[in-house]
C-alpha cells in the first residue's frame, strides 16, 4: 500500500519538477514547484517523519512559495523567457547526467536496511533539537533570520 502511494507521489514530484524546468511562464513554474513540494511532503510522511512533512507544507509551500509568487507579481513577469544557446544546453545536460550517474553509483546500495520502526514524533524531534549541539545551532539560526529580515528590507528598499 505505502509503496504504491510512494510511487504515485514520486511520479508526481518528478513530473512537476519537469514542469518547473520546462515551463516558459515563471508563474507556472512556481505552481509546479508548489506541487513538487507537496508531493515531497507526502513522501516525507511515508518515510516516517510527520513533523517535517507538516513543516514542509507550512514553511516551504506556504511561506516561501507565497513569497516567490508575491515577487513574481510585483515584478510583473510576463510569459517571455528566451531560450539558451545550443552549446550551453548540451554541456549542461552532459554534466548533469554525469553527476547523476556518479551519485547514483555512490548512493544506490549505500544505505542500510531501515530500522523496523522508530519514534519520529514531534516530541522526539524536539528532544533532539533542543539538546546540544543542535540547541546552539537553533539559537544561531534565529540570529540568521534576524539578519535576513533586516537585509531583505534594506536591499529591496526604494531610495527616497
Amino acid at each position: 500500500m505505502t509503496a504504491i502511494l510512494f510511487y504515485v507521489f514520486a511520479a508526481l514530484a518528478v513530473g512537476s519538477a519537469l514542469v518547473v524546468v520546462g515551463q516558459r511562464n515563471p508563474i507556472y513554474s512556481a505552481f509546479g514547484l508548489i506541487v513538487t513540494l507537496c508531493a515531497l511532503s507526502a513522501i516525507f510522511g511515508l518515510l516516517g517523519s510527520p513533523f517535517i512533512a507538516v513543516l514542509q507544507v507550512v514553511v516551504y509551500a506556504g511561506a516561501i512559495m507565497v513569497l516567490f509568487l508575491f515577487v513574481l507579481m510585483l515584478l510583473g513577469v510576463g510569459a517571455e523567457d528566451r531560450k539558451s544557446g545550443r552549446t550551453l544546453k548540451t554541456v549542461a545536460a552532459v554534466l548533469a547526467a554525469a553527476l547523476a550517474l556518479e551519485m547514483g553509483a555512490v548512493l544506490v546500495g549505500a544505505a542500510p536496511a531501515p530500522v523496523a520502526s522508530f519514534d519520529a514524533s514531534t516530541r522526539a524531534v524536539a528532544h533532539v533539537l533542543f539538546s546540544a549541539p543542535y540547541l546552539y545551532v537553533f539559537e544561531a539560526t534565529s540570529i540568521l533570520i534576524l539578519a535576513a529580515l533586516v537585509g531583505s528590507i534594506v536591499l529591496a528598499r526604494r531610495d527616497p
Partner: peptide, 11 residues
C-alpha cells in the same frame, strides 16, 4: 557551469 564541472571532476 564551471562549478558544476568542477564538482563532477572532484567526485
Amino acid at each position: 557551469l564551471v562549478m558544476l564541472g568542477g564538482a563532477v571532476a572532484l567526485v
